[in-house]
């Protein structure tokens, strides 16, 4: 291969890769633009009557009530395993009586909102995307629009409002049941003095720790529902499109919960 051939090949490969890069950048910008438009529309329509309370309560039932069992299951084991790991770490240092407050603070500030968020992103974010996506491909969304009903207002707003209200409730239940799991391991299995265990919790944990968790849970609820519904409305094609939309809703819902958690923690550490 001559030098000029090599140069030509290198040029063509570079052009191709730059083309792919440019295409991806444009796609990302396009996606962000669509998401911003969607967010604006949802925020606008959320405050416009009619307020469909029956849809809101239906969604509350689905998100909060129907997730109760899985939240309790995850929280009791999370509290238990976290208590045990803390015990193993603290045992040699003689701090084993601190298991109660360490687990309680971790649950309140991090584990309860984040793990509830991950569970709800998997369970409800996916369902929102699948439900709206199926309605989109079967022209049910078009039917709403043709009737003069804004599909964002009818389908997205009740889901987002219900997720915003449900998430702090679920996170609080997670906190409570997680502490029960921790108490079972700490007091009943590891034989830590019950009075010490219980007294140390209010000594180290304040209301601001609980507030921090509740604020996070509320924000996560909003984000999970916005992402879930957005990917539902973005579905194109048939069953394959619905599958892709559902997958994106779950993946992005979970990733965003973890990323936003970091920034919220930094922000709330300053203001609380």
């Amino acid at each position: 291969m001559t030098m000029s051939d090599k140069t030509r090949t290198l040029k063509s490969v570079t052009e191709k890769n730059l083309g792919i890069l440019g295409h991806n950048v444009l796609n990302t910008i396009n996606g962000l633009g669509k998401f911003t438009n969607y967010l604006t529309s949802v925020c606008y329509w959320a405050f416009k009557p009619p307020y469909r309370w029956h849809l809101f309560t239906q969604q509350m039932y689905f998100i909060a009530n129907k997730s109760l069992f899985i939240i309790c299951l995850v929280s009791v084991f999370s509290g238990a395993v976290f208590a045990y790991q803390t015990y193993l770490g603290f045992q040699g240092l003689g701090f084993d009586s601190f298991i109660g407050p360490v687990v309680a603070i971790s649950l309140a500030k991090e584990l309860a909102p984040v793990l509830s968020g991950l569970v709800i992103a998997g369970r409800c974010g996916a369902a929102m995307a699948a439900n709206i996506g199926t309605m989109k491909v079967t022209e049910q969304v078009d039917a709403l629009e043709v009737m003069g009903i804004n599909s964002h207002q009818y389908l997205a707003v009740p889901r987002i409002a219900a997720a915003i209200i449900s998430m702090p409730i679920l996170s609080s239940i997670f906190l409570l049941v997680g502490n029960v799991g921790s108490w079972l391991i700490g007091v009943k299995v590891l034989r830590i003095d019950e009075m010490t265990y219980l007294q140390k919790i209010p000594e180290f944990m304040g209301m601001d720790d609980i507030f921090e968790g509740l604020i996070k849970a509320t924000v996560f609820g909003f984000l999970i529902a916005v992402i879930g519904t957005f990917h539902g409305f973005e579905v194109k094609g048939g069953a394959e499109g619905v599958g892709r939309g559902t997958n994106l809703a779950v993946v992005w819902g979970m990733v965003i919960v973890l990323i936003v958690d970091f920034f919220l923690t930094s922000f709330l550490a300053v203001i609380l």
Binding site: M135, E139, Q140, A143, V146
Partner: peptide, 17 residues
């Protein structure tokens, strides 16, 4: 509001399932 003057029958009926 104007769209309320229309009725539409979709290809696959588009009933709310």
């Amino acid at each position: 509001e104007f769209r309320k003057k229309f009725g539409m029958l979709f290809q696959y009926a588009a009933l709310f399932d």
